[in-house]
Design a protein around this nucleic acid. Structure first.
Lengths: 129, 129
DNA sequence: CATGCACCTTCCCTGCGGGGGAAGGTTTAA
DNA sequence: TTAAACCTTCCCCCGCAGGGAAGGTGCATG
């Protein structure tokens, strides 16, 4: 199958598929005589794996590792878990940061009249020494 | 004051200060005879404003607008609030996404033995059709 | 058989918000 | 005078994605 059909099946952009190949996320596709990338059903699975991992927020670096563990039948689940736990920690960190931002923003928005007058607690907060 | 001192006072990188100037976030600094950027105390305040807004997760685009509202004494607080509310919505959106990811990740990590065996619910989840 | 159109190829530019470092000029203190 | 600390511009890189140009290919239709 050509890249367009693969893109269709995986709901990924053809551009992204080429990029993933370039980044070494997926193996280099074989080519037709005219240079078109040729794919099989396996490739659909690989890309869906990548897509699911992306949806969980894994970085490309992590996904590379996860893919190699996936392919490696002698992997230990501890290796997989270690990647997942690192990501878990990063996500938790981000969550905390966003919660802190939101706490402040919610407070500021709540206290801003939002009328025609210039007085504004949001501006005041940003202007604090 | 030179850029280094300003960077010191604002705890920002001199590189970032130049970049902010280039992006039009802050006005172009006047130059000494030898071409060094010259700053005054006002600039400290501007950069601290930018820094605080960054800490709240505002985009550079938003910060540009917030700065111009800050400078504009005939602003309406409604204009400020509108920017803040848009950002509030985006942050809430991000929060929800991360919470959803974390929910799955937490579950997967919890169910993965993390031992020497290859069987792993994390890999299985990513491999799902 | 030719022409058009959808598809494919590579290449470079854009965005965000930074960071690193080279190559060279300036200021200041020893 | 010389060394160091500072400044300048310039281009490179990261992650992750998208846009679009310029040109080759595959296939149905007239």
């Amino acid at each position: 199958m050509n890249i367009g059909e693969l893109a269709e099946k995986t709901q990924l952009n053809a551009k992204m598929i080429r990029r993933y190949e370039e980044l070494g996320i997926i193996p280099k596709a074989s080519r037709s005589l005219s240079g078109y990338r040729q794919y099989g059903d396996k490739d659909v699975n690989v890309l869906i794996f990548v897509k699911r991992a992306r949806a969980l927020g894994f970085s490309m670096k992590d996904i590379k590792q996860l893919l190699s563990l996936w392919r490696n039948k002698t992997r230990s689940s501890a290796q997989v878990k270690s990647i997942a736990m690192k990501h878990q920690q990063e996500l938790t960190q981000k969550l905390t940061e966003i919660q802190a931002m939101l706490k402040t923003i919610n407070h500021l928005v709540h206290n801003c009249h939002g009328d025609d007058r210039p007085d504004c607690p949001i501006i005041e907060e940003l202007n604090k020494p």
